[in-house]
Structure formats: structure tokens, C-alpha cells
Amino acid sequence: MSSKPDIYTTKRRGRITNMLFTSACFLATMTCIFLLVLLIWNIIIQGKGWLSWEFIERLPSRFPDKAGIKTALWGSIWLISLTAMFSVPLGVGAALYLEEYAPRSRWRKLIQLNIANLAGVPSIVYGILGLGLFVRALQLERSVLSGALTLTLVVLPIIILASQEALRAVPDSIRRSAYALGATRWQTVWYQVLPASLPGIMTGVILSLSRALGEAAPLIAVGAMAYVPFVPERLTDEFTALPIQIFIWTSRPQEDFHHLAAAGILVLLVVLVSMNAIAIFVRHKYGKKIRW
């Protein structure tokens, strides 16, 4: 045998570490999947017996077998619609300014850095801001409006960042051609850039709103009520929301309320997963059609 290694044999030690490492990484991945399945399975087992049409239609109650999520569900619907109305124009507008209008200056860099950091601010801090600003300073009290404005602040940075990414994906050649045809900046944006980036923006918006739908902390800080026996009808009405109702039920010691919480979580998860599915659908359906 020569001293040079044969090309058909590997060093044994290298092969074993390689294999161990690969298996460890694979195990980590499988752990993630296992955890997800386990958690969701657990919730389904706990909640499925309590989930019924009456559960969705009934008002809240001190008695577990009479309690329902009607007010919480409607509260969440109010919140999410208002939040969408406020945050989408603001967020897309800010993204348009940063990507299409702002000169590459220090000012733009500052705003950009600021938005990235706002996205990392804990939602409870937005709740405190909402408490100080909307509830106290603007005298909006513990209303649906206060809650929606607070949630708007929570999701705004996320919508801006997602929209910016979608706008950046539109190639510059589209803008150049529109300008060369005599379009003004706004005409270029409105007729060409926005339609081309719409699937991306939509995906970002849906995902941010599903985040808003699951938020409880900022709403508790602005004073969402634990027990609201009516559906909000005006912007100034008191409100509760699905995650808050779940929180209240979970913090009760009685076993039955835990089952109610699980049933509430199931409703929330179904809504969230459908929103995610819509987002994925939009991304695939309209994203693939445009190939640059």
C-alpha cells in the first residue's frame, strides 16, 4: 500500500461525526414539527367537546356551560376591521414614500432604522402608549377606537416593512419605461408599481392583521373589559376580544373554563390559519404569473 489514501475509503472518525451531526440537526428539525403537532393536538383534544354553534352565539357567562364567545368574536371583528382601515393606507403610504419618493439621504436612513426598531418594540409598550395617548390624553376612554388605534401602532411597522419588500421586488426597468413615456412619479407608482407589487403587499397585510388578531397584551393595557355582555355598536363602546376572553378563561382555576379556553383557541386558530392560507394562496397565484 502506498502512503497516499485510497479514494474509496473515508476516515472513519470523520464519517461518524458527520453522521452524528446530521442526525442531531435532523432531530432538532423533527422536534419543532413534533412540538407543533403536539400542541395543536392537545388543544383539539381539550376543546373539541365544547365547540358548538351555541358556543359561538352565546354571551359570556359565569357558568362554564352557558358561556359563549359572541361578544369577544364581534369585538375582534370590529378591532380588526378598524385596524385594517387605519394601518393599510398609512403603512403602504409610508412604504411608498420610503421606496419611491425619499431621496437616499440621512433622513431616510433614520426613518428606516426607526421602523426596524419599532417592529421589535414589545406590544405591551404600545399598550402603554395607547393608554397614555388615546385613553387619557385624547379622552377616547376604553373604547373600540382606542383598541384599534393601539393595534394600528403595533402592526404599522410590520406592514411598512412587508410593503417595502414587495415594492423593492418590482424591477427598475418598469419605472424607467413609465417615466420615458411621460408618466409623472405618481402615475408611475399608481398605474405600474403598485399593481405589480400588490400580491406581495396583500400577503404582508394579511399576515400583519392575523398578528393583530392574536394580540391581547396591548388591549389589556388600554383597558379592554373582561366582561362585556353586549356587542359593540359604536366606536366609543367598550369591548372585549377573543384573545382576552381566552386569557380570562385560562386564568380561572376551574377545569371547565380551561376547556372553554381551548374551544376559544380553536376558533381563533381556525381564523388565523385561514388567513395564512389566503396569504399563501395570494402569493402563489399572483406571484408566479409575473416573471421578470
Binding site: T29, C32, I33, L35, L36, L39, N42, I43, Q46, L207, S210, R211, L213, G214, E215, A216, A217, P243, I246, F247, T250, H258, A261, A262, I265, L268, L269, L272, V273, N276, I280
Partner: peptide
């Protein structure tokens, strides 16, 4: 297959994890 599952995990609200901590 895995990445959408992780997206679902990321999308689960914090209050749900609170529930799981107590009950499970």
C-alpha cells in the same frame, strides 16, 4: 413542507402558549 409549518408556529398567538403552559 417544514417552512409553512414553522410559519404556522410563528403565527400562534402568545395567549395560546400561555394556555398550553398552564394546562399542558
Amino acid at each position: 413542507i417544514v417552512k409553512p409549518m414553522l410559519e404556522i408556529l410563528a403565527g400562534i398567538p402568545s395567549v395560546v402558549f400561555g394556555y398550553l403552559a398552564i394546562v399542558f
